[in-house]
Amino acid sequence: MKTHGKISSEMEVEVPASQAWDLYGTLKLIDVVVPDLFKEIKILEGDGGEGTILDLIFNPGAPFASYEERIHKVDDENMVKEIDVSKGGFLDLGFTLFRICWEVIEKTPSSCITRVSITFDVKEDSVANLSYVSILPFIGMMKATTNYLLKNQTK
């Protein structure tokens, strides 16, 4: 048996959806979030498209020193990007799936909604590790990204 779950959060951003997706849908996101949330992110394989593998090295105090992610899906038309933890981190804690989904949804021509969702499966004998699942770091990433987008908005 496994326990399944999903949590999400969203934020309205006063920039066109295409500008937000230009950040969320590419590896440019790394440059925005590294200073605040990560010590370093290494690109092990790929160019940001499906199959790209990243090694995330966390700042001290995080629940993990590092883990690897694989970009599972990049859908430019629907502005959806799915990333799976592929080695270490949550997988070492009994999770069989830990997927982060970034979405950009057009609201008006000059604004959009950014949404992050975490979907996970954890083995029954590891349910106690659900306490490590938190949307807060991803909300921090959205805030950093929103600030960046607003400061660097192209008209």
Score class of each variant (00 low, 15 high):
S66F: 03
R70N: 07
I100A: 08
G61C: 03
I100L: 09
M79I: 07
D55C: 12
V32K: 11
I53G: 03
A65Q: 14
L27A: 02
R70M: 07
E45N: 04
F64T: 01
K39Q: 11
G48D: 13
W102Q: 10
V33K: 05
V80L: 15
D75N: 14
K73W: 01
S18C: 06
T52P: 15
K39G: 04
D36I: 15
D47G: 04
V74A: 07
F58V: 05
I57D: 03
V104K: 10
S117T: 09
V33C: 04
G46Q: 10
R99D: 08
G25Q: 03
G51W: 13
L23F: 01
A17Q: 14
W21G: 05
K73C: 08
V104I: 11
V34Q: 08
W102S: 10
K87H: 09
F98S: 14
V80R: 15
E106T: 13
F58L: 06
P60A: 02
D47P: 02
D55L: 15
E82S: 13
M79T: 09
G61F: 00
D36L: 15
G25T: 01
E106M: 12
A17K: 15
L97N: 02
G51R: 15
S117G: 05
P60C: 00
K39C: 02
S117Q: 06
G88P: 01
D84Y: 12
I41P: 05
L54C: 00
L37G: 06
P35D: 10
F98K: 10
G46M: 05
E69S: 13
G51V: 12
T96C: 11
A62M: 06
I71Y: 02
G25D: 07
G48H: 10
K39S: 09
A20R: 08
N78R: 15
K73F: 05
T52I: 09
M79P: 05
F58K: 05
I83W: 11
I53Q: 05
A20G: 09
W21N: 02
L93Y: 03
L56K: 06
S111V: 06
D76L: 08
R70F: 04
S86Y: 07
L97Q: 03
N59F: 00
D76I: 05
I43P: 12
R99Q: 13
E77A: 15
S66L: 05
V104G: 06
S111A: 08
T26M: 07
T52G: 15
